[in-house]
Simulated scan of single mutants.
Amino acid sequence: MDVRAPSPPARRPAAGRGGLDLHELEVPEAAVLPFAVGSFQRIGALSLADFPHRHTFYEIVLVTAGRGRHVVDSQPWPITPPHFGVIVPGQVHHWEGARGIEGSVLLFNEDFLVRHPEDVAVLQALPGLSWLSPSGAQMAGLLGLASEMERELRAGDRGHEGVLRAYLHILIVRAARIAGALDASASGAGTGAVLPVSELVDRFLRLIAAPGQGSRTLISYAREIGVSPGYLHELVREQTGLTPGRLTRRRRVLEAKRLLTGTDLTIRQVSDQAGFGDPAYFCRFFRRETGLSPGEFRRRAGGIHHDPVV
């Protein structure tokens, strides 16, 4: 890779024996932007990693050719290009049977979005649709933007940082339009787009989405955000239709599912990493939320088979 371009994500093992690998976006020099773009081959082998892992950074993939499956949070998505996909920090994903994959990959840290903070909310919303299938013209536009970003990054001309941020913002907005149009056509509603939530609610959603947050309380989140617990509760319920408690439980269940299907951790270890002090309580909680015990879910989901030692 060109010396001006960030290195491919470095592999970092997650805490805990048998845990998920955690990939970080590293750059060769402190002055280099936390951003990388290129083909799957140029970014490196980890761009098509066949083992469950997660990132500390955002990844956008534009798939133009190939076959296999892309598995995101235990959901397999068949590869039938063209595709647009987003993987946000904390999500667990891997590629299965990937053959002949071509296209572009974009990697960037959240601080790269500092000039367009509203893009964070859009990126957090897009994985709900996970695997978009743009039209030929839409995909050509997205690929054109990726190509321009790669050229700017490799050239490193004066002002290229601002150009890269602007192109990325345009790409995210266009992806949101595609997602909104697809969502509307599926529901029979008028056209729309993925709408960002308020800054406070967006920050709360990002906090609860981070790994290792399972044991935190609403009071601690409110203190970090700088508002009262009551105000945060009402604001979150107004913006999302769900209480902070319900959203937090959903995130804890999702994190447990990621660990159950992506690692060989025992049930006790999953309970600990998901923020539950008592494995027995974790099993009751998980069954109440999903209708299955952790072991039953692991077997049905086809995750790594490991005796569920509690």
Rank of each mutant, 00 (worst) to 15 (best):
E199V: 15
L22P: 00
R177I: 15
G97Y: 11
L113S: 06
A186T: 08
A181M: 06
A256N: 00
C283Y: 03
A65I: 11
D157N: 08
F51D: 10
R223D: 08
E255T: 11
P89E: 14
A181F: 02
G275C: 09
P34S: 05
V114E: 11
R151A: 15
V32M: 02
G188H: 03
T64I: 02
L22W: 01
F204D: 05
R174N: 04
L106C: 09
A193Y: 03
A137M: 13
F40D: 04
G159Y: 13
D202M: 07
G262I: 10
V114M: 04
L260F: 07
G156W: 02
A210Q: 11
R251E: 14
P82R: 01
G277M: 01
R165S: 03
R288N: 03
A15F: 02
L123Q: 08
I43F: 02
A15T: 12
Q75T: 05
R115Q: 11
W131K: 13
R99L: 10
L195E: 15
V270G: 05
A186M: 12
G190I: 01
D111A: 03
W77Q: 13
T217C: 08
N109V: 00
G136W: 08
P294Y: 07
G162F: 04
V71C: 10
G90T: 07
R69K: 14
L145C: 10
L129F: 05
L265P: 06
A189W: 07
E150K: 06
R174E: 15
I79P: 11
A45L: 13
G136E: 15
V194A: 08
P6I: 05
A179D: 13
G90L: 03
S187F: 03
S271T: 04
A222G: 05
H233M: 07
L242I: 04
I170P: 01
H306E: 10
P52L: 06
G291M: 09
S104M: 14
V310N: 00
A14C: 00
V63Q: 06
L168Y: 07
